[in-house]
Simulated scan of single mutants.
Amino acid sequence: MFKLGVIVNPVAGAGGPLGLKGSDALHSSDGRSEARAVRCLAHLAAGALGRVTLFGYGGAMSAQTSIGGEVAGLPFVAVGQPLSEAVTQAADTKAAAQALLAAGVDLLLFVGGDGTARDVFSAIGTSLPALGVPAGVKMHSGVYAVSPESAADIILALLDGGLVDIELAEVRDIDERAFQEGRVRSQFYGELLVPRIGGFLQHVKAGGREVEELVLADIADEVIAEMDAETLYLVGPGSTTQGVMLALGLDNTLLGFDLIKDQQLLATDLNAEDIGLALARHQGPVKVLITAIGGQGHILGRGNQQLSPNLIRQIGRENFMVLATKTKISGLAGRPLLVDSNDLALDKSWEGYIRVITGYRDSIMYRVSASGE
């Protein structure tokens, strides 16, 4: 079940017909943003076939008239309520975004304009993928789908196992000082992680096939670019993860775990006990590099059983970096990535969507399922 967080700014876009440059100062809705939210969610419901549950604040902030009901035919779970249903504020958007992050939603869908995007960014940063439905007066940010239906189509592609890129997109808003001087100029406020429908856009040769050596090198470059000197890295089995070690010029255990820090090799071919001792000695952050088994899709429990359920829990899902080529993901034909740690409760806690590094500055979102389900 895909857990979709939703935030609607009820006054977004209401300033447009009044000739205003935004809706920040308004305290009443003309229904535009709610109508666009319903358009998006109805389109989503028609294709989701029972695979999506909505989470959000009750009432207008989720295009819902009463807590506990449905929104556009989708089941709804309330995670809170705005301070005032009559007058919602930026603080409500921020609080709702933080509540949805805590609820563990797979994606945050927000309906509004640049001011709404700023509020969402200030609440969650890049901790949670987010996608905007355009409804505002000011639309300078790059975080919005081109229409409500397009936003739904991106989510449907995720549900169907499509290649949905996830990348940083700019949050911008009008530079108020410049505007007061009669100049329209946008100001950069930050970046959100935004899913986009993409394809084989880089390193594609004739026939639309990836050149594996180039892609593995690109994946390695991206991992190395994200590395920092204080983090301990466990590099798991597989030729995809081996590419990182080759790029660093380090020896590699193709079927085992190696340990590196500050791009230096500390130990090779670690077993579960070795990994536990290494974690106990290290005081800083830890990351684990794993890859999917081609054709099967397992990312845990096949070939990397040195990671016991206790170790996986100790490290935390958020500290696993999944690496795979788009060719390998396409080979799953929409089937999910699988976890089989021999602990079904742990496996189910991994269900949802995870970032998969597929190249340099190139990542996708992809579904994870417990293999016992």
Rank of each mutant, 00 (worst) to 15 (best):
G13R: 00
G16Q: 14
K21C: 07
G22C: 05
A25E: 13
H27Q: 15
S28R: 12
S28M: 11
S28F: 08
D30M: 05
A35Q: 12
A37W: 02
R39Y: 01
L44Q: 02
V52D: 02
L54Y: 09
L54Q: 09
T65M: 11
I67Y: 09
G69Y: 08
E70Q: 13
V71G: 00
V71D: 05
L74K: 02
P75A: 04
V77P: 01
V77N: 05
A78L: 01
T88H: 01
T88Y: 04
D92E: 13
T93V: 11
K94F: 01
A103K: 07
G104P: 09
L108A: 12
F110E: 00
G115N: 10
V120M: 08
V120N: 03
F121H: 14
L128T: 09
L128R: 03
P134H: 13
V137G: 00
S141A: 11
G142R: 15
V143K: 06
V143W: 10
V146G: 09
P148S: 10
E149D: 15
A151D: 10
A152F: 02
G161Q: 05
G162F: 09
L163K: 03
D165H: 15
R172N: 13
I174R: 10
D175Y: 03
E176N: 11
A178K: 15
R183F: 12
S186Q: 13
L192P: 01
A206M: 09
G208N: 11
V211R: 00
E212C: 03
A217N: 11
E226P: 00
M227H: 03
M227E: 09
D228F: 03
V244E: 05
M245V: 11
A247F: 04
L248F: 11
L255T: 15
D262I: 03
Q263I: 05
L265A: 04
L270W: 08
A272S: 15
E273L: 09
D274I: 07
I275F: 06
L277W: 08
L277I: 14
A278K: 05
L279P: 00
A280G: 04
K287C: 05
L289V: 06
A292I: 03
G294D: 13
I299M: 12
N304T: 07
N304L: 10
Q306H: 15
Q306C: 11
R313D: 08
R313Y: 07
R317C: 07
T325M: 10
K326P: 03
S330A: 13
G331A: 13
L332Q: 10
R335I: 03
D347N: 14
G352C: 05
G359N: 05
Y366V: 11
